[in-house]
């Protein structure tokens, strides 16, 4: 587009003149058509792709991302493992609110740096305060050192609900729960209506307000179709329990980085797993249990 739009939100006089003269003549239309990635436009829904189509789609994406970021990309579509249902545990008495997990997640999962997207919100609450509605909590605390006396911290990301409100409301089926319990989004199928964001009780879904900006040297090139591959503007994204790692047996990035070991991850169907031990021996609660979303994210202490 030749006429670069004003970055300012205000509609000024020049804007009006421009609009009234050239606007109708198709200035906008031209811009619109140029902005569409036609290859992706005709791509099928992930679940409807056959093996051949999936293979060619992944190759196409790898090529596209490699060209864009100047580095070799791997875009996988690793299938869920048999007999796994992922669960997550977080030790509230350990968490010190250092936000290491937030930034490890951003790096691992290629979240946009500008405008900023964080999949994890670490809420700080005063001890003894009412916190059920989280209104007295904040995620903007910024002391020199953490933990602060008299506060506790609660990181919140996607709770991977069994009864996911977000999946229920999506008009196009662009988000769904995988057999291993991970709620995923097909970024090339999402229409950006943000109904899922209204439905999510945990603020876990995030919208790409602009074309995501990720420095070329920081991009993670090991990606999954349903996970951390670069997203386009105008679609919703969310935590996937690091699907590109966990489906290969690795721990999620947030669990690996946590300096206090507050983050636990494992297979809920495996009686020997850390998660099962935790559920059987610790005092466990789930966020907003009254909504019956049945999260697979357990807070314990």
């Amino acid at each position: 587009m030749k006429n670069k739009p004003d970055n300012k939100k205000q509609m000024n006089r020049r804007g009006f003149m421009k609009a009234a003269t050239a606007g109708m003549a198709g200035l906008a239309t031209q811009g619109c058509v140029n902005n569409i990635n036609w290859d992706r436009f005709f791509q099928s829904h992930f679940k409807e792709m056959d093996k051949e189509e999936l293979k060619s789609t992944l190759a196409k994406l790898e090529k596209e991302y490699s060209a864009k970021y100047g580095r070799e990309f791997v875009v996988k579509a690793t299938a869920p493992m048999e007999g796994t249902l992922f669960g997550y545990g977080l030790d509230l008495s350990r968490c010190i609110g250092c936000r290491r997990c937030v930034y490890a997640c951003v790096g691992e999962n290629n979240q946009s740096r500008d405008p900023q997207i964080h999949w994890i919100s670490v809420m700080r609450t005063k001890m003894g305060d009412k916190w059920a509605d989280l209104e007295n909590s904040t995620r903007y605390y910024d002391p020199a050192l953490v933990p602060e006396e008299g506060y506790f911290y609660m990181p919140i990301g996607c709770q991977m609900c069994e009864q996911s409100a977000c999946v229920k409301v999506c008009p196009t089926g662009a988000t769904w729960k995988e057999p291993d319990g991970i709620v995923v989004v097909d970024y090339d199928w999402c229409i950006g209506c943000r109904y899922c964001m209204a439905a999510c009780p945990y603020g876990a879904r995030h919208f790409n307000l602009a074309e995501p900006d990720i420095p070329k040297d920081e991009i993670n090139t090991n990606t999954h179709y349903l996970g951390n591959r670069p997203r386009p503007k105008g679609v919703v994204e969310k935590c996937t329990f690091c699907i590109q790692r966990t489906r290969e047996g690795k721990y999620p990035a947030c669990a690996e980085i946590c300096p206090v070991g507050a983050r636990k991850f494992g297979n809920l169907l495996d009686p020997e797993s850390e998660m099962r031990y935790l559920l059987e021996h610790k005092r466990v609660f789930r966020l907003k249990e009254d909504l019956n979303t049945q999260p697979k994210f357990y807070y314990f202490f």
């Binding site: 939100k9 509609m11 609009a19 109708m24 619109c32 902005n35 943000r194 995030h206 602009a210």
Partner: peptide
């Protein structure tokens, strides 16, 4: 025409030009 111009800005830059954010998503 104004509307179309405004929409073209939104189309090209994304919802960042609106006041819609993750917290108030509609």
């Amino acid at each position: 025409g104004i509307g179309l111009y405004a929409y073209s800005v939104q189309w090209n830059q994304g919802f960042i030009v609106t006041s819609i954010r993750d917290e108030v998503s509609w």
